[in-house]
C-alpha cells in the first residue's frame, strides 16, 4: 500500500465529516430520524401523505448545497470517470442494494456506527469490502 500524500486532505476531511455528523445530530435530536439518504429517497417511492414533505425537504437541502456553495466560493471539481453505461449499472446496483441492505454510507456508515449498531457495522464492513474488491478488479486485474 502506498499512501498518496498529495491527494490526502486530512483537515478538510475531518471538518467536512464533522459537518455531516452535525447534520445527522440535528436530524436525530430535532426530528427523531436517521439521516440515511437511501432510506429517505426510497421512502418517496412508498409515499405516505404525512411523510413526503420532510423527505423532499431533506433531498432539497442536499441538492441546494452545491448551488449555495457556488455563490460563495468556486465549487470543487467532481471528476466522474465512469461512462454512461457503467453509471447506469452502478446506479441500479446502488439503488437495489441500499434498499435490500436498508442503508448506505450515511445510514449504516455514519449514523449506524455512531449508534454503535452491530447490524450497521456488518453492513459497513460488507459494502466497504465490496467497494475495495470492485476497484481492485476494475483497476488492477
Amino acid at each position: 500500500m502506498i499512501v498518496d500524500l498529495n491527494a490526502f486532505t486530512p483537515l478538510s476531511a475531518l471538518a467536512g465529516g464533522a459537518l455531516i455528523g452535525l447534520a445527522a445530530a440535528i436530524f436525530a435530536l430535532f426530528n427523531g430520524r436517521i439521516a440515511g439518504i437511501s432510506s429517505i429517497l426510497g421512502g418517496l417511492l412508498r409515499p405516505k401523505p404525512d411523510d413526503i414533505g420532510w423527505r423532499l425537504a431533506f433531498v432539497a437541502g442536499l441538492v441546494m448545497a452545491p448551488i449555495v456553495y457556488s455563490v460563495v466560493a468556486a465549487l470543487p471539481s467532481s471528476r466522474i470517470e465512469a461512462g454512461d453505461a457503467v453509471l447506469i449499472g452502478a446506479g441500479l446496483l446502488v439503488g437495489v442494494g441500499t434498499r435490500y441492505g436498508a442503508g448506505c454510507t450515511s445510514g449504516h456508515g455514519v449514523c449506524g456506527l455512531s449508534r454503535l449498531s452491530a447490524r450497521s457495522l456488518v453492513a459497513t464492513v460488507v459494502f466497504m469490502a465490496a467497494g475495495f474488491a470492485t476497484v481492485f478488479f476494475t483497476r488492477h486485474i
Binding site: I80, A82, G91, G95, T98, T124, A130
Partner: peptide, 25 residues
C-alpha cells in the same frame, strides 16, 4: 438481506465512486 444488499451496493459504489448522498450533490 443485509449482507447481500450491502454487497450489491458496495459493487455499485466501487464501479462509479458514487453513493446516494453525493449523487444528489
Amino acid at each position: 438481506r443485509l449482507v447481500i444488499g450491502s454487497a450489491l451496493f458496495g459493487v455499485g459504489w466501487g464501479l462509479a465512486g458514487i453513493c446516494p448522498g453525493p449523487a444528489l450533490v
